[in-house]
Nucleic acid binder design. Structure first.
Lengths: 235, 235
DNA sequence: TCTCCCCGGTTTGGATACAAAATCACTCGA
DNA sequence: TCGAGTGATTTTGTATCCAAACCGGGGAGA
């Protein structure tokens, strides 16, 4: 649970963490500018602090800093989105493989506790629900005991949230809680094949819901967008 | 080839890069203090710049920043070392899997060009030789076309260099150039199984050379170290 | 002699100041 | 009406400054 995080500065951590939460909860949408002054004001700290937080987030791929032009929430392209999801498949497959080599007892116990939380938040608090769904995957990674694997999964789950914010409409892409339950069962049974397969299709489902309809992709050509609205004059 | 790197500041990049090189080439050994003042002086920049570079390196796990106590080159524990190598196995297995699904022609060509460089530097320039050996693995990752996979491999190869600096004696842990050659052959033949296996044992070899003899592990007890130097009085 | 405490020097944490770059708004001209 | 040019305003990049934390040494007391 204790992460490798941010020993560098007591005061910049809250800024970092708030921004991070806001981005992955989609309160700050991709492309939004993040001026150092105003952020500093809202937190009552100087730009120095904010700057550190932004540099960190840039390193994690959640914000994009451009020279002399400041920071804004990252806007992953559709290609990057596929790339990130593919990497996520790789990392989470590793997680499942490692977990299935371990004693399932304590693992399943921890997972079930988390699942209960997920279920209790299900219809009530959408934001909390989304956050818990992400944290399920992070918990899995942490249970492997590998610090570095947990860090990578943590990072990539965040970036996937960002992708959802960019490409998925509404919250169609919420993690299925019952899929999580099935994954837990597979681990409990000690069936590595099944667990890995289930995780794979779970992630594939999330990806599909996120990326199947890239209508609102701002990266596509203006002409192309307009062509959809043009009445067919020559016909 | 174009990395996700450091758009944040024109001037802090050279500092970042020099420190990084110095650390992975083992010129700056684990545990060495990195005071902001003196570094700033040598580069002719202010502490502000240096600080940014150090924060970045901290995020990458190459330096360790402790509150009010400044930065020093990271000292991975033996447990972290095993953790990192295991992660590296996972990432590079993924690299091989992806490469073997692609057209081998251009890949093999690029790799052979690199191999030629490695061979030419072999007995001559030890530092260059080590650097090229690391870059071979990074090149492999880049050839997959996955930005994020390449970034992760890049980061983890750096951290492995740091581990070598910490635990391996002398340069016994140099990558075997001929093992690289065999990996290229396996890719050229399109034999995924073989390529993956060869990569696995190659990395395992590096790890063994690095970690088999953790004599000089500073983490061990002072008493234990001294006991080796104590003449056996009671006998 | 050993230990503890105090003090000066050094280093970091963070805010601020100032210059350079970019952005915005407005005017002028076609 | 539209677009280019220009000055004002905002925002970033970096150096510097001050306060607080840490480190090392020397002296007082046991």
């Amino acid at each position: 649970m204790i992460k490798n995080m941010y020993k560098s500065s007591k005061r910049s951590f809250p800024v970092y963490d708030s921004l991070r939460q806001a981005i992955i909860e989609q309160a700050l949408k991709p492309g939004v500018k993040l001026p150092e002054d105003s952020i500093g004001e809202t937190f009552g700290v100087s730009r120095t602090i904010v700057r550190n937080a932004l540099v960190r987030l840039d390193a994690e791929g959640l914000v994009d800093i451009q020279p002399n032009r400041g920071a804004s929430v990252a806007e992953p392209t559709i290609e990057e989105a596929y790339d990130i999801f593919e990497m996520r498949q790789c990392l989470e497959r590793e997680v499942m493989q490692r977990l299935c080599r371990m004693d399932p007892k304590p693992i399943v116990k921890a997972l079930k506790a988390h699942l209960a939380e997920e279920r209790s938040a299900l219809g009530k608090d959408s934001t909390r629900s989304i956050r818990l769904a992400g944290e399920f995957h992070i918990l899995l990674a942490e249970l492997t005991g590998s610090q570095i694997l947990a860090n990578y999964v943590n990072e990539i789950v965040s970036r996937c949230s960002l992708i959802l914010a960019r490409f998925a409409q509404a919250h169609s892409a919420e993690c299925g809680v019952e899929e999580h339950a099935e994954i837990i069962s597979a681990i409990a049974e000690g069936d590595a094949e099944k667990a890995i397969g289930q995780m794979h299709s779970h992630l594939h489902g999330v990806q599909d819901r996120a990326l199947l309809n890239p209508d609102d992709d701002r990266a596509e050509n203006v002409a192309e967008i307009l062509s959809r609205y043009r009445t067919n004059e020559t016909d």
